[in-house]
Nucleic acid binder design. Structure first.
Lengths: 143, 143
DNA sequence: CTCCTTTTCATGCGATTGCATGTACTTTAA
DNA sequence: TTAAAGTACATGCAATCGCATGAAAAGGAG
């Protein structure tokens, strides 16, 4: 039980450190980066909102507004889905791609500092295995 | 880097699962439990707000309002600190103690289900070591 | 004592989140 | 075709968060 509390506390603290470094560098929240990254992976097809939602583990209303904001500042485009009149398809814009590129070095170095550098290869392997076992979505990384 | 993303995603997902189980059982958020738990550990002396803040890794304004809410529903008492006119001392109330007791079985079983049961002894040891290395506060569990 | 800095806590305000619900479209089935 | 059920997304509203700031007290320097 102490390990549980520690797990939550450390993961939150590390995430907060990385987030605040990015914010200090003038970048938007990590969730934006994650969303844009998924859009780039799906390029050039774009993603339906519900697909993005599944990949990001976000609540539906949450994603609806996230895509609002991304579109509002020009990082993504939203178009009605031709096959499904209910749906929106979200595409990464050039500006979004540029933001990904701009954030990557800062993100990478921040994660290195707060996470990667603190783990050796054996730690990484052990952690990967543990995360597979914990993952409630079952979408393990090593299948 | 993939491990980083996975670490964040899994820890968030597991926490969300536990939180939502507790909420479904009609209990308040985990942060409330954590705060009350710290207050019980500090009993019968109570805690200054800044002490609770350090233990919980919360922003100052956040804790100020959390203690507001705990006091508002009678789970804690706030009294002016006699040694420091700026300070508040927070005490666990009987109602707060009762809530801790009531939440504990549900919390315990939820953490068991989503976390503890999925790890064997070797995993636990490995994870503990890894968390020590990651902990940005340096307040390691094994020092 | 007086002035200045630091610490502790509170709070107004805008942005974000969570919840419940609404709207529009698709699918199913008779 | 038509009605019922399900799916995809949006949104009003209240609660909460983050930020900046304010107020009150403590600690120090002269």
């Amino acid at each position: 039980m102490a390990l549980w509390a520690r797990f939550m506390r450390v993961s939150q603290a590390v995430l907060a450190d990385v987030e605040s470094e990015l914010k200090a560098a003038g970048f938007p929240p990590l969730a934006w980066y994650d969303a844009l990254l998924e859009l780039r992976r799906a390029a050039p097809d774009g993603l339906r909102q519900f697909e993005l939602r599944e990949r990001m583990l976000l609540a539906q209303y949450n994603l609806s507004r996230l895509s609002d904001r991304l579109a509002a500042v020009g990082l993504a485009r939203r178009e009605p889905c031709p096959e499904d009149g209910r749906g929106q398809v979200i595409f990464l814009s050039e500006k979004g791609r540029a933001l990904l590129d701009a954030m990557w070095p800062a993100y990478r170095s921040s994660v290195a500092k707060h996470f990667a550098e603190r783990l050796d290869a054996a730690d990484a392997e052990a952690l990967a295995r543990i995360l597979d076992q914990l993952d409630p979505t079952g979408s393990g990384g090593s299948e």
